[in-house]
């Protein structure tokens, strides 16, 4: 079994996955509530919490799987990209666990991890496919030819889609995290009530900063007291604009690249309107959309393992190469 660890942002996660991609345990301790009081993830606060949570989360995962450290054949861990201080907590723990038992360590790219959420059983997705990866930190279109990696064909020029949801939620007074709050409120609103344009950029890239500005103006144009009444319409219109941009670019790229299959992963893949709009695509299971360690252990099955003890001085990286 592979023991996976993930601490790149505000979830402390551990999972046990078999070589065949079967999930034996998948424990995620979310810090979302902790960060809500700051209106977003605070790196120092996240790092402090990871330190407290890693060992209990690992112990819980082993207990859920009915396993002990002796049953672990390799330790997988997110090496980056992410918050460097947060990554170092998980990486240090993973190195120490691997070293204690002379196991190999598999450093995993967090984005590869999101893609690999599609390689878990049941229902593993066979490459090749075009993958939309949309999270709070990234919005990418990836050409996935095999399970070991991907090629970036499009990215966001400014905000990530998840970030756009968070900023929109803040403007509408919905708090943090914003994606789920907008999704919920949007169901009661009219998505055509407001025209919120999304900037058209060349190639297969995305841009969401203009959309946020459009929402600022739409909110400002409302009379006092009217915001409360139109909040659901604004949420629905804003969500419609983001989803339209994501779906449009994904379909265009799939056609241009001749991709037979389209897949969607990452936290934004849990958005209900996006799931309905791309119902014909391979959608990451809801439980595996937001950050988790099962996807990290899954990616490790197709990544290069570093044998004991060559990983002892391994460092984390904050941004994608």
């Amino acid at each position: 079994m592979i023991l996976g660890l993930e601490t790149s942002c505000d979830e402390t996660a551990a999972a046990l996955v078999t070589a065949d991609g079967e999930v034996r345990a998948n424990v995620v301790a979310s810090q979302a509530e902790l960060h809500a009081r700051y209106g977003g993830v605070v790196p120092e606060v996240a790092s402090r919490r990871h330190l407290e949570l890693v060992a209990p989360v690992v112990e819980r995962a082993l207990a859920d799987a009915g396993a002990g450290l002796a049953d672990v054949d390799a330790v997988a861990v997110t090496r980056g990209p992410g918050l460097i201080g947060a990554l170092l907590v998980g990486l240090s723990a993973a190195k120490t666990l691997a070293w204690s038992r002379r196991l190999p360590l598999v450093p995993v790219d967090h984005l590869h991890g999101h893609v690999a959420s599609l390689f878990l059983e049941p229902g593993s997705v066979e490459p090749p496919f075009l993958c939309l990866l949309a999270t709070g930190g990234h919005t990418l279109l990836l050409d996935v030819q095999d399970r070991a990696g991907y090629r970036v064909v499009g990215t966001t020029l400014d905000d990530a889609a998840g970030e756009a949801f968070d900023k929109g939620a803040r403007l509408l007074g919905l708090g943090y995290p914003g994606g789920a709050a907008i999704d919920r409120l949007a169901r009661a609103g009219d998505p055509e009530a407001f025209s919120l344009p999304v900037a058209r950029v060349p190639g297969f890239d995305f841009s969401f900063s203009g959309l946020k500005t459009a929402l600022v103006y739409a909110v400002r144009a409302l009379e006092a007291g009217e915001l409360e009444r139109r909040r659901a319409d604004l949420a629905a219109s804003y969500q419609r604009a983001i989803v339209r941009a994501l779906v449009g670019r994904t379909r265009a790229a799939a056609e241009a690249l001749g991709a037979q299959k389209v897949a969607v992963v990452g936290g934004v893949a849990s958005n209900s309107e996006l799931r309905e709009s791309l119902a014909d695509a391979e959608l990451a299971p809801l439980a595996l959309c937001t950050d988790n360690a099962a996807m990290i252990a899954s990616a490790a099955r197709f990544a290069t393992a570093i044998p004991f003890p060559d990983y002892l001085a391994l460092d984390a990286y904050a941004s994608a190469a």
Partner: peptide, 19 residues
Amino acid sequence: SYTGLRMGLITARTLAFAL
């Protein structure tokens, strides 16, 4: 240093668990 400090403590916690 907060980062250095955490590295030592997570190493200690994990080692204590593993050993």
